[in-house]
Design a protein around this nucleic acid. Structure first.
Length: 405
DNA sequence: AATCCGTGGCA
DNA sequence: TTGCCAAGGAT
């Protein structure tokens, strides 16, 4: 239900655009005020920004434009080059879809300029189609992302928790899009959500939409949007095998299947990852016969839906060793060219670290293969019960689903 | 409809 | 340390 607030005027797009003209962020993919946007840049940035922060995207965006100056260049590039350029950004299906999309757009002679056309392209869903249509082609379309959901849910004090509230939010969002400057409006709502209407401690005093905001009127702005928290996954365990070849110091790697977790990304061979994996059986899963040494400690990594612990085994093999079927030896100097996800960089850093220093602990740098972090021992903790997040203290808890198997 | 997909930053 | 979150999409 909606708060029976006093006389709230309807949010006016014009008020937001006035604010935007004064406070818009300068971003590498954003055209100058009044300039014609480049669909390639708009599209590339929108894909990268899916579930990813602006700060994380900036260096990748610059690198992509450098390596793939045009969509034609991107379409013509080998998939491996695209995956490598994407390595570290996460959600790797985005990179595969990006490449496929580039080929489709080039084959078609350019981007479609409608939501319906854009929506058919790989990697482009409802949000991205709306964003590109509005920003690049000035169509009167709404781009409903997490920012917009937060802004709208506060403006109208929507009590329905996400994701159930999505249709309601979209309808309201669409009703606010102005006939003129829909692209600026889409970016304005995102800027508002990113700088003013933030998840925590929103700066309501600076908000152009404070007067019509129902949540603010009740002082409950921080409690919206209502949301169900996802249950964390079970801890999975496994073993990773780092084979170093004498002579060129090459590392044994393989490429994961194109679908699923870390699809098309590179990794040292690993066992299956299961909750009951016993590292003591490690050698049974080794990719080749060698004098494997189990390294102390484990490598921990938390994916979106489960935490992972990998026990690392290391072996030096002779210069004559041939890579097993489906695998390859990559020289250490060429590791940067491999599409290694963060978890696997941690494994290599763990394996290639110099022997632990006798006395002083050293600071933990990011997983940089040149200056690898210390191994950390200790087992891991188990998941917690599901709960509703960000409810007002007075509200009754909401449960979702049943007990875990 | 609910799950599955990464990663880094930040209280 | 832990949980939360950031311009979602595909199945």
């Amino acid at each position: 239900m909606v708060a029976p607030a006093a006389s709230h005027s309807r949010p006016d797009a014009a008020d937001l655009l006035v604010w935007y003209d004064r406070h818009r962020r300068a971003l590498p993919w954003r055209a100058e005020a009044g300039a014609v946007p480049d669909p390639y840049r708009v599209w590339l940035s929108e894909i990268m920004l899916q579930q990813t922060t602006v700060a994380a995207v900036k260096p990748y965006f610059a690198r992509f434009l450098d390596r793939f100056p045009t969509i034609a260049a991107l379409a013509a590039a080998p998939e491996e080059a695209v995956m490598s350029a994407w390595a570290g950004l996460g959600y790797y299906s985005r990179a595969r879809n990006l490449h496929a999309c580039a080929k489709a757009v080039v084959a078609a002679g350019g981007f479609p300029d409608t939501v319906e056309g854009l929506r058919k392209l790989p990697g482009i869903g409802a949000y991205t189609a709306g964003a590109i249509a509005a920003i690049a082609f000035d169509r009167r379309e709404a781009a409903v992302d997490g920012n917009v959901e937060r802004v709208i849910s506060r403006l109208f004090a929507i009590e329905t928790p996400l994701p159930a509230a999505k249709p309601e939010i979209r309808t309201l969002a669409e009703s606010l899009v102005p006939a003129r400057r829909p692209g600026d409006f889409a970016q304005a709502v995102m800027d508002l959500g990113a700088t003013i209407c933030t998840p925590k401690r929103p700066a309501c005093a600076l908000c152009p939409w404070m007067p019509p905001c129902r949540a603010r009127a009740e002082g409950l702005q921080e409690t919206f949007p209502r949301k169900l928290r996802k249950e964390p996954g079970l801890l999975r365990k496994g073993a990773a095998f780092v084979a170093v070849r004498a002579g060129d110091e090459a590392i044994l790697l393989r490429t994961r299947p194109p679908e699923g977790l870390l699809g098309s990304m590179a990794e040292p061979p690993t066992s299956a990852w299961t909750p009951d994996y016993d590292p003591a059986r490690g050698l049974l899963d080794a990719p080749l016969d060698a004098r494997w040494k189990r390294l102390p400690g484990v490598v921990r990594h938390t994916f979106t839906h489960f935490p992972l612990e990998l026990t690392v085994f290391l072996a030096r093999v002779s210069a004559a060793t041939v890579a097993p079927e489906g695998m390859r030896f990559t020289p250490r100097a060429e590791l940067d060219g491999e599409p290694l996800p963060g978890a696997m960089k941690k494994v290599l850093a763990h394996a290639l670290a110099p022997a632990a220093p006798v006395a002083p602990p050293q600071p933990a740098p990011p997983p940089d293969l040149a200056t690898p972090p210390e191994p950390e021992p200790e087992p891991r903790r188990a998941p917690l019960p599901k709960v509703l997040s960000r409810r007002p203290a007075s509200a009754a808890p909401i449960r979702k689903g049943g007990p875990r198997r």
